[in-house]
């Protein structure tokens, strides 16, 4: 699936988008996989309360299932307006 990062999450991880092969069943499981990869991921995902997640462009909770998901995006709380 495609994993996207925005704002400081993008800066901390160092790229806006990557393709990840995963069998993670939930967003939390995907986060655990990413954290285990490298320090920059562990740093970006250190505090999930500071992050929001969207699956296929819909805001969801971190325990949301990933079955059939094409795109997951991680970002800080939004600051529009």
């Amino acid at each position: 699936m495609d994993v996207l990062y925005f704002a400081w999450v993008r800066e901390r991880i160092g790229l806006p988008k990557e393709r990840i092969d995963t069998s993670a069943a939930t967003v939390t499981a995907l986060v655990d996989e990413l954290r285990a990869r490298e320090e920059r991921y562990a740093a970006a995902f250190a505090d999930l309360s500071a992050l929001r997640v969207a699956v296929d462009q819909e805001l969801v909770d971190f325990d949301a299932p990933l079955a059939g998901a094409r795109e997951v995006a991680f970002f800080p709380p939004m600051t529009g307006g």
Partner: peptide
Amino acid sequence: YLKSRAPFWKKEILRDGAHWVAA
């Protein structure tokens, strides 16, 4: 709703540094 639920993020580039605006 637009402030907190539309996926926009603001970064302030200041004369003496830059930071993401916190929600």
